Amino acid sequence: MDTASLLNGVAGGVLIGASAVFLMGMMGRIAGISGIVSGMLYEPVSSERLWKGAFVLGLVLGPLMLTLVAPQWGNVAGVAEGAIGAPVASVPVMVVAGLLVGLGTGLGAGCTSGHGVCGMARLSTRSIMATLVFLACGMATVFIVRHLLGGGA
Rank of each mutant, 00 (worst) to 15 (best):
M94G: 01
M94R: 06
M94D: 04
V95C: 07
V95R: 08
V96E: 08
V96K: 09
V96P: 08
V96N: 06
A97H: 10
A97Q: 09
A97C: 13
A97G: 14
A97E: 08
L99K: 05
L99Q: 06
L99F: 14
L99P: 06
L99M: 13
L100R: 11
L100S: 14
L100V: 14
V101Y: 03
V101K: 01
G102Q: 05
L103I: 01
L103F: 09
L103T: 00
T105W: 15
G106N: 11
G106E: 02
L107I: 13
L107D: 05
L107W: 14
G108S: 07
G108I: 01
A109K: 15
A109Q: 14
A109V: 08
A109S: 15
A109M: 10
A109L: 13
G110N: 09
G110I: 05
G110Q: 10
C111F: 12
T112V: 11
T112W: 09
T112Y: 10
T112H: 06
S113G: 11
G114K: 09
G114V: 07
H115W: 15
H115V: 14
H115R: 12
G116F: 06
V117M: 11
V117R: 07
V117F: 09
C118P: 00
C118T: 02
C118D: 03
G119L: 03
G119H: 03
G119F: 02
M120G: 00
M120D: 00
A121K: 12
R122S: 15
R122F: 14
R122V: 08
T125Q: 14
T125I: 09
R126Q: 12
R126W: 05
S127D: 11
I128W: 12
I128S: 09
I128H: 09
M129Y: 14
M129R: 15
M129H: 12
A130N: 08
T131N: 00
T131A: 00
T131K: 00
T131F: 00
T131L: 00
L132P: 01
L132Y: 03
L132T: 02
V133P: 02
V133F: 04
F134L: 01
F134R: 01
F134Y: 04
F134N: 01
L135D: 08
L135I: 15
C137T: 06
C137E: 02
G138L: 05
G138V: 03
G138H: 06
G138N: 10
G138Y: 09
G138Q: 06
M139R: 01
M139H: 02
M139Q: 04
M139K: 01
A140C: 04
A140E: 02
T141M: 07
T141W: 08
T141A: 13
V142T: 05
V142I: 08
F143S: 09
F143I: 05
I144S: 13
V145K: 03
V145R: 06
V145I: 06
R146T: 15
R146L: 12
